[in-house]
Every structure is written in structure tokens, then in C-alpha cells.
Design a protein around this nucleic acid. Sequence first.
RNA 1: GCCCGGGUAGCUCAGGGGUAGAGCAGCCGCCUUGUAAGCGGCCGGUCGGGGGUUCGAAUCCCUUCCCGGGCUCCA
Length: 637
Amino acid sequence: MASVKLPDGRQLEIEPAERARDVAERIGKRLARDAIVAKLDGNLIDLDAPVDGGGEFEVVTGDSAEGLEVLRHSTAHAMAQAILELYPGSKLTIGPPIEDGFFYDIEVAGRITDDDLPRIEERMREISARDLPIEREAVSKAEVLRLYEDNPYKLEIISDLEDGEITLYRQGDFFDLCRGPHVPSTGRLGAFKLQNIAGAYWRGDEKNKMLTRVYGTAWPTEKQLKAYLRHLEEVKARDHRKIGKDLDLFTFSPDIGAGIPLFLPKGEMLRHLMEDYVREVQTRHGYDHVWTGHLANEQLYVKSGHIEHYRDDMYPAMVDGETRYRLKPMNCPSHMTLFNSQAHSYRDLPLRYAEFATLYRYEKSGQLSGLTRVRSLTQDDAHVFCTEAQVQEEFSRALKIVREVLDTYGFDDYYVRLSLRDQETGKYVADDEKWTRAEGALTEALDATGIPYRPAAGEAAFYGPKADFMAKDVLGREWQLSTIQVDFIQPARLGCEYVGEDGQGHTPVLLHRAVTGTTERFMGVLIEHYGGAFPVWLSPLQAVVVPVADRHLDYARRVQETLAAAGIRVEVDDSQNSMQKKIRENARQKVPYLLIVGDAEAEAGTVNVRRRGEREQEETPLEDFRARVLEEVGSRR
RNA sequence: GCCCGGGUAGCUCAGGGGUAGAGCAGCCGCCUUGUAAGCGGCCGGUCGGGGGUUCGAAUCCCUUCCCGGGCUCCA
């Protein structure tokens, strides 16, 4: 007789024809009730599936990632059923679970708008109330081809499937080609909500037909769903576009153009502080800053190869007689031109050129989004010219800068995606040996620092391997921030050369790297990361002096002068508002310190300090406050 | 670029063929305030731009610009 082994090591004897649900029942009633599917020898199976072959057995509930996926997948099926019932003749395509939810791409007979979502959701609840058993059925390829004879999408999918391995899932009149597994019945769906409608090309290819995609989210319990929706609210409240407007940081104007952010005084101060900081770190690590303007002769990009590969992302040329100019889409060719303007000995290397350069890229209009995707962007870019032997050390140096900066901003949860060559494809240039050495150097440098990294084969740039830093913000969202790339190709193309110890000309290796990526995008990330409440050193406005009554204005101004003289960014709120309203308004502006001054403070030479986010105040000698702020700014806490 | 939704006062939004609205902000007064909205008044809009339908258009249609969600996480 067969037996299954449970996760706790127990063995259970299995009767012939016994199903997963029976085993779950025998383990525990409660577990059986929470069960979504089961796992046999590492494979997910339906609760209806027989387990009389025995093996390692595990009950899967909605608490596990796998259970959630199944739950969401089943919810997607219920949604598909609801849509087919409400829009007869619609054609299903694919409907997978995704992070936090699911979607289904459907060629809808008619049209679904956001206003229809409640109706569909209601029908889904009805389907759930019907508690239809969800049954798996093995079908032959011929049979399933017939079933879907009027659905070209499914036919396309089926054509890639092996006969004998094709399964269908049925619930009531509804069926869907599906690998499964699924919850045992539609009554076992959890809490769900439909979220939004979007267009999606069949197979993601813009040459294909546009389908209607409906997104939804699903959770085991109502409580979890609520918590998730609250999380979404939090994300929305931190949206950098909203905060950017509320805090007067930046704006956009159709009079200027799409994707070209305009920075108000506070936003510019923020940019300035961000860039200043990186400049300071880079300088400390031996980088030199250069400046190469906004335009370049198109011939430069012909030579570098960018025109060929990058043309669609560049602004059209400005023509001046025989000469065609392009807005700079990247700095490397300019920095190599700078390199070439002088003769170099191996003794000069490594040469590290850094630039905060505003570049212009013609992003597709639909790709633009707030500060995270813009057409005018400022990179904190640098190019290190070095010998091959210096690659590892320079990589480590860049790594140090990146780590220091990310650490300061509180991005302590990150890993490196190490993009390597894929031997199979022919897209990578340069010789094998160099690649092998470069990849080895990067891997060793990463190992030495102990940063977790995940190799990604086939993701390398055409000119060399790269390391991208993936950091999580306070809301757990992942952003690609810094990048370090090794380039064997471009220096040769642009004729970069140094004289080696042997007196011969050699081509340097080029390291491309960016710490915060672009100022605009990183600012967007920072705004959301901090929710607009920037640390003191980064706050455009660090303190506001609030006089209790107009007769305290003189003292307020003296406080301002004292602090401003120390380099603290401080204003006096001399508006005609009541004191409470001034506190409210400045608190909403997320000013780190409000300094309330009235009779007592003026007399004692103190300020009453109200810290951002706190209600308690503290009367502090002005001198002490000044020293405290300077200390905070100095340590960038 | 493509699909869907949207654009009304500086901001947030209501109004969807029949005289353009509210709150906040702004301005002017009064109040002189002790820790998140003091009171009153006033100003403010070619309803994104252009074209059309209509006796009449913010509202319906076309077009254009801009914004938002999304465009393989594969049955």
C-alpha cells in the first residue's frame, strides 16, 4: 500500500483512489477547510486529484505564495466566466495570476469600461455563490481544437501544446484551456476586487490586435483585501506627481512640451542638493567633473554607432548649412571626445570623467510618466577610462560610491542584477577572452563586497557586462537605480588611445556608471520613498519661524537672520494667518522644523521647536537649535 | 505609437443641449492670536485648442494637444 510523507515527517497510509482532499481531511478539519490545492512531490495538484501513488505531500493554503497564485488564477477564471455571460461571443485569450492579483485578456464582444466593473464583479459574486465544482478534464488536441475553432488566440496557444498533455477546467457551462490547478469550487474563491481596464496587444506585440485587459486583485480573506487596498491608497498618497504639486517642487506645461519637467524654486533646491551630494562623494573618490553641453554634431553619433541603434530615441537633427546637430541623448561619445583632446600615457589612467548632463531622449508619448519617464533628463553620469588590469579596482570604486549614496538615502535593501553575456546568441561583440575576464572581474568585485547579486544571462549590453542596482523603497517597491557597465567596444570605435609602458598605442576599457541614474527619476523615487518628508539636509526649506503675534515679527526676523547666516534654509511666516493656521500650512508643507516665537521666547532668546510629525514642543536656546540643525545636516541624517 | 478613460477658476472637484458652480488658495477689511483651518467681503473661467451639428454646445460629433491607466509576470 502506498503512503505519503507529510512536511512534519509523518507517514500516512493511502487507500486506493484516495484524493488530496481526503488526505487533508485526515490531517485536520481546519486545514482541509483552508486548503486551496495540494502539493505532491513538489507539483501542485487539485484537491480532487488522486494521491494513491504516494510521495511527499503538502496541503497548500492561501497563506503561501503558491496558494495565492492558484486563488488568483481561479478568480481570473470566474471573471472570464462573468464576462462571457455578460458579453456573449467574447473570446478568451490568457488570464494569469500576477503579483497581488490577476488579469484576463479578452477580445470583448462590445465594450467594457470602468463603469462596467461593478457589474462584472457582482456577476462574479453570483458565480461564487453558485458554488460550481471546478473540474479538471484531460482532452485530446483534436477535441480542444474543435472546441476553440472560432477562437484564433486559443488555437495559437494550442498549436504549441503537446497532445496528451492538454487539460481543460470546467465550472458549470464555463470551460477554459488551462494547466491548473484550481480551487475545488467557485464557492472557494476569496475576497476579490476588479481594478481597472487597459488595452493589451495579443502577445504584447504592437503589430497584433489590441485586446481588453481587466485587472483584479484577490486575497484569501476580506481583511487581507482591505489591507491591500489601504496599501494602494498609501502608494497613491505618496505619488510624486501629487506631492510635487502640493510641495511646489515641479510642474509640466503643454506650452513647453510633454516630458519636460519644470522645476520651481523648491524643486530646483532639491535637485541642487541631490547633485551636490553626489558630486561631493565622487570628488572624494577621485572623479573629475567635466561639462560637454547639450548639442553635438550628428557625425559623432554616426561614428559611435548610436545613430544606427538609437535613432528613434533621438530628437530630429537641427540643420545648420552642411552641419547637422543633435540634442545629446547620452554622454559617452562626448566624454570620449574629451579624452581624445589630449594625449594620454598609461600613467594618466584611470581617468574618471563625471558630468551632470541634461540629455534629451524622444521617449514614445505613451511612455512618459511624471518624473520617472521624461524627455529631458539629467544623468549623474561618469566614464572611467582605464586599462584592462584596472577594471576590477575601478568597478569596486564605483561600487563604493553607489553603496555610500544608497545608504545615505536609506535604501538598505538592494541587490545587484549582474547582466552577463549569453553564449548562444551572436549579439555580443569583442573577443571571448575579454568577456570572460571582465565578467570574472565584476563577479569577484561583487563577491568581495558581499552584496547579493543575481546573474542574468543574456541581459548584458552589446558592448559588455553590467551591474544594475535594484533597490526597494519603504513601500517595498523595487526600483532600478544605479548601474555600472563595462565597455570594450566604443573606445575603439571612437579611436581612444593611450600609450602603454611598451611605448605602443592601446585602447582603454571604458566603465560607464550612474549612481542615482537621472536626477529627475531619482527625485521622483525619493519623493515617494520619503513621502515628501525629506530629511533635514535634503529639505528645500528646513525651518519656518512662526511668530505668535505680529509684535513678535522683529524677533522672528532676528532668528531667521541668525540661522540663515549659518547656512540654514529658513523663512518667517509673516502671512496674515492665525498662528494655528500657519502651523497647519507649514506642517502640510512638511517643513522639518517649525519655530514658534512669542513673548517668552523673545525674552529668553529661545525658539519653541516643533519637529515635523510631532506634537510636543521644546523650548530651546537659539544657539542650541542652530548647532543641532548643523549637526544633522553635516551627518545627513 | 496603440487601446481605454480624462481635461471646467491657481488647486480639489460638481454640473452632461437652455443665464458656468462649490470649497480651498488669492485680494481687501476686521481680529493680534501659544501649537493643524478666526470672521466678513471681493476678484477670479473663450469649460485644453480648432472645426462641425443645433434656434441654442461645457454638454453631441470630428480633429488636435496634454494628462492618467495599460501594452507577455505567457494555456
